[in-house]
């Protein structure tokens, strides 16, 4: 269950970012070119997934596999946790797929729209790049979570749920989610990925987690508590410094 939730949240966040770029291309240029570029990105990601997944599952011994998964998830999770704790403390601009949407629209405004019937390569390239880069992160995270001894089903189920929900929202609203608290969502994903990473790395190094699988929960609680308190301490420190100045 925890892996389903972790995979769903991580994939949803990455998909939102890719979606913002594709929506910007579709709204400001033509939907057909946005979809062609996005589809090409999806195909490349699928090919990479077909290589990375079986490579991890088939060729690495189980002990080493746990360690590799743990380290990969810790690298992703700690980076997300760092960035979003800084955002919570007001020391970094808030995460926003709306900002990506606006930036992409502005970049495309500089390119003239080709006549009807001719391919819009600038639009296709931007949609392709957006889907490819965010999609590769999805592939790595899902491949790491799927390479658990319990099998790939929970991670794939979580990823599938995220795809359905995010694509459903995209079709429904056709613009980025302005009201979504992306910083909180990304901070939560950072907590979960780091907790999974630590848990798998501990297993891979033959250390025993009291409570077995439940350890993911208390590890996540510790990480969440420390980073939230830390964000408040930094924010208070900055406020105090500004008051003195």
């Amino acid at each position: 269950m925890l892996i389903v939730v972790g995979a769903a949240l991580a994939v949803a966040v990455e998909l939102l970012e890719a979606l913002a770029i594709v929506l910007a291309v579709g709204v400001s240029r033509r939907w057909s070119d946005a979809l062609v570029g996005a589809a090409a990105g999806v195909v490349v990601c699928a090919v990479v997934a077909g290589v990375v997944g079986p490579l991890l599952l088939g060729n690495v011994p189980i002990g080493s596999l746990r360690l590799v998964i743990g380290v990969l998830l810790m690298l992703f999770g700690l980076e997300w946790l760092r960035k979003n704790t800084l955002r919570l403390a007001g020391r970094k601009a808030p995460a926003s797929s709306l900002a990506e949407f606006v930036e992409t629209q502005e970049a495309l405004e500089q390119e003239a729209l080709p006549p009807a019937g001719e391919p819009d390569w600038a639009a296709r390239a931007i949609a392709f790049k957006g889907v490819l880069l965010e999609g590769l992160e999805v592939v790595l995270i899902v491949a790491a979570l799927a390479a658990r001894p319990s099998g790939p089903a929970p991670a794939l189920l979580g990823a599938a749920l995220a795809v359905v929900v995010v694509l459903g929202l995209a079709v429904w609203i056709r613009r980025p989610l302005e009201q979504l608290h992306e910083t909180d969502l990304k901070w939560g994903v950072g907590v979960l990925l780091t907790a999974f990473g630590l848990f798998f790395a501990g297993e891979g190094l033959h250390a025993h987690w009291p409570g077995d699988d439940l350890a993911v929960v208390y590890v996540a609680v510790v990480l969440a508590f420390v980073t939230r308190v830390h964000a408040r301490v930094i924010a208070a420190r900055v406020q105090a410094a500004e008051a003195i100045a």
């Binding site: 810790m74 700690l78 946790l81 760092r82 960035k83 704790t85 800084l86 403390a89 020391r91 970094k92 780091t194 630590l198 790395a201 501990g202 190094l205 033959h206 250390a207 025993h208 987690w209 009291p210 350890a215 590890v219 510790v222 990480l223 420390v226 980073t227 830390h230 964000a231 930094i234 900055v238």
Partner: peptide
């Protein structure tokens, strides 16, 4: 000892790591 206490080392290490990385980022932003 590692079997029993290794997870404490990993958890405390990860907490110290993220706190240090955030502090460094906050300093750079300042």
């Amino acid at each position: 000892a590692w079997h029993d206490l290794g997870v404490v080392f990993l958890l405390v290490g990860a907490v110290v790591l993220v706190v240090a990385a955030v502090e460094r980022g906050a300093g750079a932003a300042k």
